[in-house]
Nucleic acid binder design. Sequence first.
RNA 1: CGGGACGUGGCGCAGUCUGGUAGCGUACCUGAAUGGGGUUCAGGGGGUCCCGGGUUCAAAUCCCGGCGUCCCGACCA
Length: 570
Amino acid sequence: MRWSRYYLYTTREVPNDAEVISHQLMVRAGLIKKVAAGIYTYLPFGWRSLAKLMAIVRRELDAISAAELTMPAIQPAELWQESGRWQRYGKELLRIKDRHERDFVFGPTHEEVITDIVRRDVKSYRQLPISLYQIQTKFRDEIRPRFGLMRGREFIMKDAYSFHASPESLDVTYDDMRRAYCKIFEACQLDYTVVEADTGSIGGSASHEFMVVAETGESAVVRCPKCGYAANVEKAQMRKLDAEAAIPKSTERKKVPTPGKSSVEDVAAFLRVAPRQVVKTLIYDTEKGLVAVVVRGDREINEVKLLNHLDVEHLALASEEKVREATGAAVGFAGPVGLSAGVRLIGDETVRGLADFVVGANEGDAHYTGVNWGTDVDLTEWADLLLVSGGDPCPRCDGTLEIFRGIEVGHIFKLGTKYSKAMACNYTDESGGDHPMIMGCYGLGIGRTVAAAIEQNHDKDGIIWPRPLAPFEVLLAGLNPDDPEVSRVTEELYAELRGQGVEVLYDDRDERPGVKFKDADLIGIPVRLVIGAKSLKDGKVEVSLRRDREKLLVPPGDAVGRVLELLAKA
RNA sequence: CGGGACGUGGCGCAGUCUGGUAGCGUACCUGAAUGGGGUUCAGGGGGUCCCGGGUUCAAAUCCCGGCGUCCCGACCA
């Protein structure tokens, strides 16, 4: 491709609405252009990279006998009413009406449509298992789109669905998918981790996320370097410490004034105890009423665990008024002793072994000291509600968990029969009985993966494409277009590279060398071949890798061979 | 949805407080020189100052209402 005829325009300025580096570089290097918040055009240069990733995805999914199809983006509301998600799915679901005022949605995901298709075609256990996938534009009306393609409202996703007659069959496909995902992300040369994940609103029994390690990632993940345990913090557990248990009761409960001390730190400092001796009580508002959760003062509640434990749809810290209603005191003085009767009380496992601790007194400016389970509070509901953090003990071995941030580029679920039951997607078994099919679903963010690759592969001057995702493999630049010898050699090399099947972008623009070098660094094509009058006088052209920019001077006749060698290394 | 900020040639910004000729950089067009890290000089085109209403002799600037965008918290590929 000759750059002079190509649609690729770079900018020197950083766009004022781009915060993270991958977003800035994708705009500056002419990959994407914003149309509205969270909605982007994929420009030709960016689309080439997405297309490469999609080809890798297709290759690996076809290899595990998944069949590609394409479902409609616009889906009738009836299917969503049938699955129950018309009511449950929140405002992220874009609902639209046609000219007859009939309800439709722009699909944020396709469980309903795929289940509807399969239930009509597949009747027998002999037809199972089945795996289907598509690569398609989705729309989720996110409250806050951000970071360019990392969290768009409209985005391209690969979504796959599998159908089975037994849990064992699902296990096999799930493992196939997991391995295929690993191959895909390895093919993209990404530094990623597979982590255990919460199943969230999609539901199901098991789930793993594929996290690309990056500072700007929106998810927090813990990993044990010793045994390899890795989990999203939403899901992560820690080992219970025996030492925390069975501290004997030694004091009587006593109410003490704590004027103006509402935070754990303040109360602990004021009473001269460690924050971990303070038990904090958080009042949550849910559709099932108010819930009080007690947790060790130095720790945080994992709201996802709480949501799952309570089996509720909505969960939020209660308002000032609701807290008053439940405790009779201002926020900061709630405690489990003498809580309003209608409030459900749940204890996190971490406070179970505590004795002689401090709690809020449910009245302004006062706390209790010397509080103990049993004698002072009758608490019967215990659960693991802890938000795990770095430094906590691994739940699987005696190692210590590390915490890092990641970009969720893929997510696989064992769905079970949630959708097949709701939508009567059944098969007939050997003995003629009907059963709902067991399902799995598997998502992979196409644009997000490319953004993550840039997030992980760049320097101060621009993108450094991993070769498998690079829009072009080689950048060819002639520096002195007026020099007939330069242009002759450059044209010859261009023809030769193309003859070898190399994807080459030929910078034939009438620009000064400085501009060409700066643009080359910015757009980050892995291998660079430069022809300039100076080195050509010595019978040499330059070959270099974008990553280290180490120049190799070779005769023009050897150039293509050296380019191919470097490509193999890129 | 709560909290904060912003909206001025394509892009990045100044001007708004204190109302009075719409400006700078860059990009673009023409010409010349230059030709190994965003070169230089000369000339030129391009604006509903987000939208609507109000105050005023006069509004980018003040007032009211809307819209859009970005950032920080609850969702997800």
